[in-house]
Structures are given as C-alpha cells and as structure tokens.
Computed example of a mutant assay.
Amino acid sequence: MNQETRLQALSSFLKSKRAKIMPEAAGFPAGSRRRTPGLRREEVAQLAGVSPTWYTWLEQGRDIKVSGSVLDCVATALQLNDDERKYLYALALGSGPSAAPTDEKHSEITPSLNRILQELRFCPTIISDRRCQIVGWNQAAAHVFMDFEQIPAEQRNMIRLLFTRKEFRRLAGNWEHFVGGYLAIFRAYYGQYVQDEWYERFVEEMKGNHPEFQYLWEQSQVSSAPDVLLEFRHAKVGKMLFHLTSFQVQGNTDLRCSVYTPAPESSTELKLGRLLERQD
C-alpha cells in the first residue's frame, strides 16, 4: 500500500483501540463529561510517556519519525496483544515483505498436508494462502459450507465469498461473528505485507462493492490465530457448533489451515457423520 493509505490505516487503528479502553481500566476516573467512549488522546500520551502533540500527530496519520521503543510504549498504553503490536509496527514503520510469492509453487498442498486434510474427516478444514484464496479443502468442508469445486479457482477467495454467497449468510447463526474471524486473520496479513499493494486494491474493491464490508473492516480485530465458537444452521441437519482454530502451515509456503472442530457435548459430529454418509 502507498504511504497515504498506510498512514490512514494507522490512524483508524489507533482511534479504534483508544475508543475501546474504558478510562477506569487504565487508571483514570470515568467522569461525566466525556463526549466519546474510551480514553482521550492526552491520556494515551500520558500512559505512553510521550507528548500529547506527538501522539495526536501519530493518530492523525501524519508523516512523523517514530522509533520502535516509543511504539512499544504506545502499544502498552493501548493494551495491544502480540498480533496488534506487529500490526502497529508495520503500519507506523512501513516495514514488511513487499510481495511474498503467491504462485502455484508456493500455494501447492504437499502430499503430507493433503493426508492430514483428508484424515480430519469430522472436522471441516480449509487451506488458504496469505490472500485468503482457498487452495484446498476436505469433504467435510464441502458438505458444511459449499462445494468449492463448483467455483472457478480465481474466485475462491474466502473474504469475497463471505460477502457474495448467500450460502454463508444462511449458514452462520451470527454472520458478522463468522466474518469477523476471517477479517481478523486478513488484517494480520494486511499489516504483515504492508508494502504489497494487492491488499489495498482488494480492500478498496470490497468497500466499493459491499457496504457492510467497510463497517466490519473498521471494527475487525487483528489476530493470526483466532479461536472462536461458531453456530451454524445447516439446511439438512440443523444447528451445528464448531470451534474455529486457525494456524499457519509449517514450511516455506505461506499457507493457513482453518479447522472447524465439532464442539464437545454437542450433536455436531453425529450430524456431520449423517451428512457424509449421504454422499458415500
């Protein structure tokens, strides 16, 4: 992304995180004259040990000099987790890989990974690249979500599908929560590959085509490995509960494995078994 876009993203991120911190949680009185939620800029500056003017400029997205040590203080003041810290540093410093390969060689599924994918018979599993392009899935995923084989390869982007396919909206009990998990992963990549202009083009495309995207994007968290509980309402078997666990595949590829594990003490695995039996 270009410098202007990067600094705008930094500004939005800082404002969002500041607004989510309750004053009393940071050691300040709640007060009755606060016009906006969260901390004031000067309070963040005080916690970070920087001047209010400098922090204001940082939050406004001005092109100012920053150092890692000062960003550490800002990250601590805003109570950022590890993924959010990395995101802050990438946006503020403009550092990161320019364009990691996304060709077939770096998106291919090895025989061992394919074996793992198929062995997860009762866990719908999706393999995607750093742009959330789906490159592999198992039969359980095809039965719970959709038959990805029927979608042209170039259109198998998970973020885009979440907003364009009615199947996902009908499936998710809380569609926004479902989308939020993937946007958290996508935002982590967005910060990691801050110099790759593809992300800026994709985000602008989604904002232009899907009004809901902009709101959810601005509200999204930053997480390379969200662990969330999702409720699906499958047309054939009814309510299903899954824990989403997402992790990066080891090796020199930039692939991610998203596993939907049936929630314990639910009938989800039994229902999934019935879905699979119908296709055998």
Results as ranks from 00 to 15, higher is better:
residue 173 G to F: 03
residue 160 R to L: 12
residue 237 V to F: 06
residue 118 Q to M: 12
residue 194 V to K: 00
residue 123 C to R: 12
residue 150 Q to M: 13
residue 267 S to Q: 13
residue 56 T to Q: 07
residue 275 L to R: 07
residue 123 C to W: 05
residue 154 E to N: 13
residue 132 C to R: 10
residue 155 Q to A: 12
residue 77 A to L: 07
residue 193 Y to N: 09
residue 190 Y to G: 04
residue 225 A to I: 05
residue 270 L to G: 12
residue 79 Q to G: 02
residue 278 R to W: 07
residue 222 V to H: 03
residue 204 E to W: 01
residue 159 I to D: 03
residue 129 D to V: 14
residue 127 I to D: 08
residue 137 W to C: 01
residue 76 T to N: 11
residue 51 S to C: 09
residue 180 G to M: 11
residue 154 E to A: 14
residue 12 S to R: 09
residue 131 R to E: 08
residue 15 K to E: 09
residue 102 T to Q: 12
residue 184 A to T: 01
residue 124 P to V: 02
residue 84 E to R: 00
residue 176 E to Y: 02
residue 274 R to E: 11
residue 109 I to V: 15
residue 226 P to I: 00
residue 24 E to Q: 13
residue 97 P to K: 05
residue 220 S to N: 07
residue 191 G to P: 02
residue 241 L to T: 04
residue 133 Q to R: 14
residue 268 T to Y: 03
residue 173 G to R: 03
residue 130 R to N: 15
residue 270 L to N: 11
residue 23 P to C: 05
residue 119 E to R: 14
residue 136 G to C: 12
residue 115 R to K: 12
residue 131 R to Y: 10
residue 100 A to I: 13
residue 250 Q to I: 13
residue 166 K to Q: 13
residue 217 W to R: 01
residue 172 A to K: 07
residue 72 D to S: 10
residue 67 S to T: 15
residue 174 N to D: 15
residue 70 V to L: 11
residue 201 R to P: 05
residue 188 A to S: 14
residue 109 I to P: 02
residue 102 T to S: 14
residue 130 R to V: 09
residue 214 Q to C: 10
residue 249 V to H: 03
residue 208 G to R: 11
residue 67 S to G: 15
residue 192 Q to R: 14
residue 126 I to M: 06
residue 31 G to R: 04
residue 125 T to F: 00
residue 82 D to S: 12
residue 271 K to D: 01
residue 227 D to M: 14
residue 201 R to T: 12
residue 173 G to D: 10
residue 58 L to Y: 02
residue 70 V to G: 01
residue 156 R to S: 08
residue 279 Q to C: 12
residue 226 P to G: 01
residue 156 R to N: 08
residue 83 D to I: 03
residue 179 V to Q: 05
residue 119 E to A: 14
residue 121 R to S: 11
residue 269 E to R: 10
residue 246 S to Y: 03
residue 212 E to K: 10
residue 134 I to P: 03
residue 197 E to T: 03
residue 82 D to R: 11
residue 29 P to V: 08
residue 202 F to L: 01
residue 267 S to Y: 09
residue 14 L to M: 06
residue 224 S to P: 04
residue 229 L to C: 07
residue 256 R to F: 11
residue 242 F to Q: 00
residue 14 L to I: 01
residue 106 H to R: 13
residue 110 T to R: 12
residue 67 S to K: 09
residue 176 E to C: 07
residue 52 P to K: 06
residue 280 D to N: 12
residue 157 N to H: 04
residue 170 R to P: 01
residue 130 R to G: 15
residue 21 I to A: 06
residue 100 A to N: 09
residue 142 A to C: 08
residue 248 Q to N: 05
residue 229 L to F: 08
residue 187 R to D: 00
residue 181 G to C: 06
residue 151 I to R: 02
residue 227 D to N: 15
residue 273 G to V: 03
residue 198 W to K: 02
residue 271 K to P: 00
residue 140 A to P: 04
residue 177 H to G: 10
residue 24 E to R: 09
residue 132 C to H: 11
residue 62 R to N: 00
residue 136 G to I: 13
residue 174 N to A: 10
residue 108 E to K: 11
residue 263 A to W: 01
residue 252 N to P: 05
